[in-house]
Amino acid sequence: MAASDTPSSRGRSVRPVGTITRGTTNTNRLRRMDRWIAYAAGRALRAPAAPPVAVDLGYGAAPWTAVELAARLRAVRADVRVVGIEIDPARVAAALPMAEPPLLEFRRGGFEVPLDGGTRAQLIRAANVLRQYDEDQVAEVWARLCGRLAPDGLLVEGTCDEVGRRHVWVALGPEGPRTVTFAARLADLERPSDLAERLPKALIHHNVPGRPV
């Protein structure tokens, strides 16, 4: 298999969609988002007869966020399968020792979300990924990712600071955007606008007086 390719659900090789980003990551960085996901998506994760699949898309230079997501979702459903997907083959190779098949796997890919057999994900989490893309690319990526969701699946896309104290994310279903969530300890904020720099790329340039979200 060529270094630039990744296996598709039909056995062919396809080029991952996207570009390599900075990959900055820290342990426990996405705890606020994960807790919200466990609550908001809990019923949908428990519903399928077969083990549901959750994707940590663009987990970064280290696999901590995928490992933590797997642990947190197991409290919701013990047999949930988490697949960490990265476009950088070196990051995938570095993550493989942390794999626990079939409950935690790592593979190379991008916004095409390569899952075996054309499986659709119950959850796709893309944290601190699209922030590094241009705003005019966001709608296309959202549509592509939502197209890889199960009928009652959830896409969670957002941005946080380096230690996860300030976080803003958008939740989308197959039909499009549903909610936007602001997560922070209020005592750490001098003013609400302190969260502005953590707005997802789809919103950050629209944070101006008189402009509705």
Score class of each variant (00 low, 15 high):
V76M: 06
R46P: 01
E100G: 01
Q132G: 00
L199D: 00
F111R: 04
A94E: 04
I37L: 15
R108C: 06
E112G: 05
H206Y: 09
T6W: 01
G210E: 09
A78W: 10
F106P: 00
R22S: 07
R15G: 04
W64N: 10
L186R: 06
F182V: 09
A49I: 05
V80R: 01
D34Q: 15
A127I: 10
A49W: 06
S193Q: 14
A139Y: 07
E175A: 15
R107V: 09
H167F: 14
Y133C: 03
L195N: 06
G176R: 13
A2C: 09
P48D: 02
V83F: 01
A75M: 11
Q132T: 03
P7F: 06
F106A: 02
E157A: 13
P177M: 12
N128R: 07
A70V: 13
D5A: 06
R91F: 10
Y133D: 08
V67N: 00
V92S: 04
A171I: 13
E112H: 06
R15E: 15
A94P: 08
P114W: 08
G210I: 11
D88P: 07
L203G: 03
R91M: 13
V76N: 02
P89E: 04
L57Y: 06
L115K: 01
M33R: 01
D79E: 10
A127R: 00
F106R: 01
A127W: 01
V82H: 05
V67T: 01
R46I: 06
A95G: 10
V76A: 03
R74L: 02
L96D: 08
V168S: 07
P89V: 05
P89H: 07
T19H: 12
L96E: 13
E175D: 14
E105D: 10
T159F: 07
G164I: 02
E135D: 12
V14Q: 15
D188M: 04
V14Y: 07
L123H: 04
N28M: 02
A184D: 08
L203T: 02
K201N: 05
R91Q: 12
P174I: 12
G58Q: 07
G164A: 13
T181S: 12
V17N: 09
P7E: 09
L45E: 03
H206L: 09
P89T: 08
R125M: 14
G84D: 00
D134V: 11
G60F: 00
A93E: 15
